[in-house]
Nucleic acid binder design. Structure first.
Lengths: 206, 206
DNA sequence: GTCTATATACAGATAGAC
DNA sequence: GTCTATCTGTATATAGAC
């Protein structure tokens, strides 16, 4: 069996690729090792030479997919808060609505109770990492005086929540979108609320 | 086989109860018809006398669970917007965080791509119905002048989103909550943002 | 409608040659 | 490491008696 340290074996990568496609497409239980072997042009025994079990193959797939993407660098230059938040929201909502992210979310959520380690890995590398990066941008905007907020983490939580609304739910469930639903409209509304709530010019508290 | 119209057979109900417990606890694939039969104190053949297949048993379970609960009646009396929104948020977040709702969400999301009809039934009776009821309350608050908003549906979407944040995600994935996370804190923050954005006294637009 | 017993298929995992 | 061939368990679904 291959060691834990990287073994950039071609077959191993082919197995992981085929397994990822199958798991994300069909879910954990509906994916068979025979199918993965077929997709990777490899015998089933070869899979077991690299991965001890279906569980561990699944874990390797999820872990590999968790080790990447983030890319919420602080907006270039010194844009105003509205522009900065809009850029961040576009990036995040685009990511959330991508077919790969939705498939990943479905399969991890469905297996989270049976594979707690995977649930944590996904959470840390996905939602938690994204939140941390956006919170840092929020904090920077607050330092510049572009936003007035006491807790960037709380504000970030709410901001992200406002992006995962009905549009996200429908995509997640595979339902068609209503005509008047668009990511841009969600983004505009969310940013608008953030600016009303935390914009630099705040109404005197009643 | 039993007709489609209601047959309040005791065994049928026992089967549905056992199946619901199993599906919500273990997920669709990991639930076996043998297990359901055991849980319902019934032979497996009896299950197939009532339900044509595992798929249809699952559908019946989900459908039955979808035909109920809502209960977002407009707050009693004429409370101010902050009180009304807080009451609504408490009710909704309590529902979202309940173990049954979380289990339902997990299993429906995981099977949504393979059973589109179920996904739609869940969406209509769950998220869509809840949103409609809350939007009506929003609209009533706007009519009273307690909120200033042009589109109650949009505002409702954002409000609900702000309740489904990190706290919800961690519960969904079965992760322990951070000490400083509490439903009440999420509710207070969300309501506060709504009041800042849509409260009757709005700042002049800069 | 309900049961016992069984058909049939396919899953995950392994043995052993190369 | 990789293959072919196989073991073994268990799943969905059904036959046929009552």
């Amino acid at each position: 069996m291959a060691k834990v340290g990287r073994k950039p074996s071609a077959k191993r990568e082919a197995i992981l690729d085929a397994a990822q496609a199958a798991f994300l497409e069909d879910g954990y239980a509906a994916t068979s090792m025979d199918g993965v072997a077929l997709g990777a042009c490899v015998s089933k025994a070869t899979i077991y030479a690299h991965f001890a079990s279906k569980d561990q193959l699944f874990a390797a797939v999820i872990q590999r997919r968790c080790e990447r993407e983030s890319v919420f660098q602080a907006p270039e230059g010194l844009p105003d808060a509205r522009t900065a938040l809009t850029q961040v929201a576009r990036r995040l909502l685009g990511l959330l609505l991508s077919p790969e992210a939705l498939a990943m979310y479905r399969v991890v959520v469905s297996e989270s109770m049976r594979q707690p380690d995977l649930a944590r890995a996904f959470y840390e590398s996905g939602p938690a990492a994204g939140k941390a990066q956006i919170a840092e941008i929020m904090a920077e905007l607050a330092r510049r005086g572009a936003l007035t907020l006491s807790d960037p983490w709380q504000a970030t939580d709410m901001f992200i929540g406002m992006l995962r609304t009905d549009l996200f739910m429908r995509k997640l469930l595979g339902l068609p979108l209503r005509e008047d639903q668009s990511p841009e409209q969600v983004i505009d509304t969310a940013v608008d609320i953030m600016m009303r709530a935390y914009g630099p010019v705040r109404p005197p508290v009643a």
